[in-house]
Design a protein around this nucleic acid. Structure first.
Length: 439
RNA sequence: GGGGGCGUGGUGUAGUGGUCGAACAUGUGGCCCUGUCAAGGCCAAGAUCGCGGGUUCAAAUCCCGUCGCUCCCGCCA
């Protein structure tokens, strides 16, 4: 017999069906047993008249909640049953895998243990509908990203995650033993996607793991996360990158809204709206003026940069003024940007770069890249880098590399913004941080 | 790396110098119960109050150290 999803039971009234799922609740009474069975699609009550099968009744009495079961029974309508007015009259039950008693914690209890404890037992925590929805949304989100890229002629890349030389800063790299030498885990596909520009691919994207050896203890940092990157050629400026990015994100929102809008409202109480285009844009200079007017005091040592409090303040300001959750902050000083960001011709202290804030959270950094070999070398030297370690990278710009730019986006951070999650540990399947390597 | 907060039965909390022989909820075990549905009723077990040291007649409670967690800052996506 084929298994029937619990959601579809209404169409099978009067039939004997096979159900497979987890025992969420057992109400064991003198003459009746009621089992609430859960699968991915819903909950249903299974009724068992004990005298009809005393041996089975005995077995059921020993079952712990969250045991994995296969049951068969007849679907009947019954107005008395509060759970959908439908129940299944038990005919057979197989315990595929019993749940030991007691459970480390009950995922369906009114009060849940600390998040850290739940992370120790992540597979149980993931049984909650809320958590499954997060990853259903993530799936739709990635599919929508790809859909938009493919419609626009992008090529997908898979760049290596093991690198021979520290590329950008070096400070945040994990190193590992690699036969007789030392290798590093990629902290971004930045150089590799630029190589694709030099290769003439024009538009590329990659969704893949990124590693950062930052001992950061915050609600929004991880040592391993999924980076979403794209890069496009023949642009005039970073404005072209922002313009593509906002249309791309609006498409993603549209797809997520279509597919999960109702569930997101029900579970997260978030009324998901496709953001209006174009996203508001502020230059850093404008951002500073707004912060000043708002009375936000930026620490003096942060000149030219924004701290998280300033980002939240800007996000709140833009939301109030325009209703948009997103805002681009552009034209950052070269002092706080990497060497490969292109400078403005009319103001060489500023870069053609931007951050994208979503609900005041930094989810993206992007820029037009400097593609002129001599200029790029000088900028590297100005940042105090030595050229030999990056010569392979620099070579991309010696034999016909088009002007280009792109961005990197944190997948889990975008999920935090979409679902209004307070902590990135919720937005990722398995969290990796300075003190978390298991499970 | 710097700063703040927290650590009490399996889990979530209360208790902040003596009334604590540590309370409540939930879970667990047992008994009872016209079909229950956040089931209900009765009973029981379960905590050397993170760990170590100190102050005090007296410490879950105050102090010091340590470990763990957490949030903020730094850094970033």
């Amino acid at each position: 017999m084929e298994k029937t999803p619990i959601r579809d039971l209404k169409q099978h009234v009067g039939e004997v069906v096979k159900l497979q799922g987890w025992l969420q609740t057992l109400r064991d009474q003198k003459s009746m047993q009621f089992l609430i069975l859960r699968d991915r699609t819903g909950l249903v009550q299974i009724a068992h008249w004990k005298k009809g099968n005393p041996e089975l009744a005995e077995l059921i009495s020993t079952l712990g909640t969250e045991s994995a079961l296969t049951v068969t029974g007849k679907v009947v309508e019954n107005e008395v049953v509060r759970l959908g007015g439908i129940e299944v009259q038990l005919e057979s039950l197989v315990v595929e895998n019993k749940a030991e008693i007691p459970l480390p914690f009950d995922p369906f209890a009114e009060t849940l243990p600390d998040q850290d404890y739940r992370l120790d037992w992540r597979f149980l925590d993931l049984r909650r509908e809320r958590n499954r929805l997060i990853f259903e949304v993530q799936t739709t989100l990635e599919a929508a990203m790809r859909e938009y890229w493919l419609e626009n002629g992008f090529i997908e890349m898979h760049s290596p995650k093991i690198m021979g030389a520290p590329s950008e800063s070096g400070a945040e790299l994990f190193s590992l033993k690699y036969f007789d030498t030392t290798a590093y885990l990629a902290q971004s596909p930045q150089f590799y996607k630029q190589m694709a520009m030099a290769a003439g691919y024009e538009k590329v994207f990659e969704i893949g793991p990124v590693f950062r050896a930052d001992p950061s203890f915050t609600s929004r940092h991880m040592t391993e996360f999924t980076g979403v990157d794209f890069e496009i050629s023949w642009i005039d400026s970073h404005e072209d990158v922002m313009s593509f990015a906002e249309r791309w994100l609006a498409h993603v929102y549209k797809r997520v809204q279509e597919k999960h809008g109702e569930a997101i409202k029900a579970v997260f109480n978030v009324d998901l709206q496709v953001p209006e285009l174009p996203f508001p844009r502020l230059t850093m200079a404008e951002a500073y003026q707004i912060l000043k007017d708002q009375g936000y005091k930026l620490p003096p040592e942060r000149k030219g940069d924004l701290d998280p409090g300033a980002e939240r303040a800007l996000g709140a300001y833009v939301k109030e003024k325009t209703g948009n959750d997103f805002v681009f902050v552009k034209d950052w000083p070269f002092t706080v940007r990497p060497f490969y960001h292109m400078l403005h011709e009319d103001n060489p202290t500023l870069t053609k770069s931007f951050d994208l804030l979503g609900r005041g959270l930094e989810i993206t950094t992007g820029a037009q890249r400097e593609h002129r070999y001599e200029v790029l070398k000088n900028q590297a030297l100005e940042k105090g880098l030595t050229l030999p370690p990056i010569q392979n990278y620099l070579n991309y710009f010696r034999y016909g590399c088009p002007p280009h730019g792109g961005l990197g986006l944190g997948l889990s951070r975008l999920l935090m913004v979409i679902l209004d999650l307070p902590n990135i540990r919720e937005a990722v399947y398995l969290f990796r941080g300075p003190n978390r390597l298991e499970p």
